[in-house]
Every structure is written in C-alpha cells, then in structure tokens.
C-alpha cells in the first residue's frame, strides 16, 4: 500500500475514534445517567451498570467501535501490521546495528503469549518489526490529545523530578523508549537502564536513543520482575503503562523486585490506570480491558496497591489521579479518558 493511502486511512480511523471519544461516550454517559435516575436504587457495581446499559443500542455501537476501530488500526487493509510488513527489508536493516542488549533465550511468560495485547496481531514481541508497529500505534492511543500525546510522558517526568533528583534510574517495561527518553532529558546526569520483555521494542528504543544522541541510557531485553541488577543499585524505579499488562501475581513480583534493586531511601514512580471514580467509570474501564485485549486491567483496578506496597516495606505511599493534559476531566469536558494514576512510594531508609 502507498504511504498516502495508509496515512489517510489511519487518519480516518483516528477521526472516528475521536468522535467516539468526544460524542458517543458523553452521549452514552447521559443515557446511563437517565437510566440510573429512573432505577429503584442507584447502581453501585459494574454489574448493576451492565444490567442498565447492555441492552442499549448506543452501548452496542460504543462497544463495537471500541473493539473494531482498534482491529482496523492494526489488522485492517490499511493496518499498521500489513503496512510495516511491506517495508520489512528497510526497517529491519535499521535495527541491525543497534546496541540493544537482547536475550534471545529469554522465555516469554505464558500470560504474555496467551493474549495479543492492544489487538496487535502476534503481540508486541513476536516479530522483529513489532517495535515499529507499536510506536506508530501509540501515537494515537489517546485521541483526545492528538499530536500532544508525548506531553503526558513529560508531565509525568516533571512530576517525578519535582520530588527530587536521581542518579540511577530503572525504567521497567520501557517498550520502545517513549517513557524512557523523557527521563533521560529530565535527569540528564543520571544513568538510565531501560528494560522490556520485547526484543523488537528494546531494539527500536536503542535505535532511537542513538539517533537522538541519548548517551545516558542502555536498552536491555529483560523481565521486570526478574532482573539481573544488584541489590540497591537504583535510586529511582519507574514504569509507564506497564502494571496493567501484568497479572496480579506478577505485579506483586515486580514490586518485590523494585524493592530489591532500590537503595534504602530510593523511590518508585509508576504511571498507570487505577483510580476509578464510580461504578459507571469502572464498567467502562473493565469493558475497555476486555475489548482491547488487556485482560489484567480489571484485576489491577481491584487490587489494594497501598496494602501491597506497605507489605513490601514501602513508605510514603501515594496513589494520586493524574491529568494527562490540560483541561481533561474538568467540568464541561465529558470526553472518554483513561483513569490515569500515579503510584509513588519510597523504600525505607
């Protein structure tokens, strides 16, 4: 397919998703509020919201579009996967000389193989071009933000940097480095280690770091809950949009590993989806997880993170809502958005 047709089709899909975000979702919310107002008692659980909404025609289209716009984006005739597949030779040549540290023998966890997250055929790890596919797809993950999508990462690193400095940073589940590069620039004198299960993603991360001249970062293929770093070797451990991709048992192991590699007094800062306000938002979020092939969004939302972190010896635990852009979540802006949350904690000195 030619580049122009690919971009036109992807722009059309993004415009459709934006309409879904700004018009269909608020309309669905109004439909829900009307139905809830007429119910004998206000719904208190996602199941009670489901009982009110699942028969609504608008909810059916809302769900269909959430599922299938993403399918078209990745696997349609103008999808990310066929587009990049047609450019395989040139793209794989770009990755040939990166200094990413790959682990060809690393066994991919069962949960990671069982579901193709984000409806990315084959997942983000099984094809050498998956980093490129993921990178292009991530540009339109949150249509509300449009071209400013990268800003959310900087808003997060600004927040982390405002709480203090760091000399040694570990970015767990770094993907292709979109979360990592803002840490490299916000903490220019720090050593940054970026790890991810996906070889194709860390290869692209390393390639981009070389292109950008980020000398303070190393990309390595590694499991976040089973790293090879020495005890106490970091003063900041971070992750962005990673925790919700893990089953609860692996989340616990990731926090345990973070506690191990942090120096006494070191801190964690994670950006993820956790603080959900009310049964309607919870119903929508759980449905998103199901429709977008992210089966652990719901289990994460139902975990008691504060208790989990306390049990692992963390202190000064903060779980706070996060605004990914100016004006989101404010009165008069009813557009759909993720329940962004920052989770911060410190290891006992």
């Amino acid at each position: 397919m030619d580049d122009r047709s690919f971009v036109a089709a992807q722009d059309f899909l993004l415009a459709s998703k934006t309409y879904w975000t700004k018009r269909i979702y608020p309309e669905l919310k109004k439909t829900y509020e009307t139905a809830a107002g007429a119910a004998p008692a206000p719904p208190e659980t996602p199941a009670e919201v489901a009982a009110l909404l699942e028969g609504e025609v608008l909810y059916r289209y809302f769900s269909w579009l959430e599922r299938h716009l993403q399918r078209f984006k990745y696997a349609g005739r103008y999808g990310l996967v066929p587009y990049h597949d047609e450019r395989r030779a040139a793209l794989s040549a770009e990755l040939r000389d990166t200094d990413a540290e790959l682990a060809p023998g690393l066994e991919m966890p069962n949960y990671y193989q069982r579901v193709d997250i984000h409806q990315h055929p084959g997942g983000v790890w099984s094809d050498e071009l998956d980093g490129y596919v993921y990178e292009r797809g991530a540009r339109s993950t949150t249509p509300l933000m449009g071209a400013a999508h990268g800003d959310l990462h900087h808003r997060f690193t600004d927040l982390v940097a405002a709480r203090g400095g760091a000399k040694d940073i570990l970015d767990m589940g770094c993907g292709f480095g979109k979360s990592t590069h803002p840490f490299c620039t916000s903490f220019p004198t720090a050593r940054v280690e970026a790890i991810d299960l996906s070889g194709p993603c860390v290869s692209l991360g390393a390639h981009d770091a070389q292109t950008k001249g980020s000398g303070n970062v190393r990309f390595r293929q590694m499991n976040a809950y089973e790293t090879d770093y020495d005890d106490g070797s970091f003063d900041l451990v971070t992750s962005t949009m990673v925790i919700h991709e893990l089953p609860p048992r692996e989340i616990e192991r990731m926090f345990t590993e973070a506690a191990r590699v942090l120096a006494p007094g070191g801190r964690m800062a994670h950006l993820d989806f956790y603080t959900i306000d009310g049964p309607f938002a919870r119903f929508i979020h759980y449905g998103h997880g199901r429709r977008n092939n992210e089966p652990f969004m719901q289990p994460l939302a139902e975990m008691d993170l504060h208790a989990s972190l306390t049990e692992k010896g963390f202190t000064n635990i903060e779980v706070i809502p996060f605004k990914e852009a100016e004006g989101v979540g404010e009165s008069g802006n009813d557009a759909w958005r993720f329940p962004w949350t920052v989770i911060m904690a410190e290891k006992m000195p």
Partner: peptide, 18 residues
C-alpha cells in the same frame, strides 16, 4: 455487516483524500 460498512467507509475516505 457493520464491519463491512466501516471497511467501505475507510476506502471512501482514502479515495476522497486521493
């Protein structure tokens, strides 16, 4: 059927753009 409609709508937009 709605999948077919959306696939066609995508094609229409690609043609409009061209």
């Amino acid at each position: 059927a709605f999948g077919v409609v959306m696939a066609l709508a995508t094609e229409v937009y690609v043609l409009r753009d061209r």
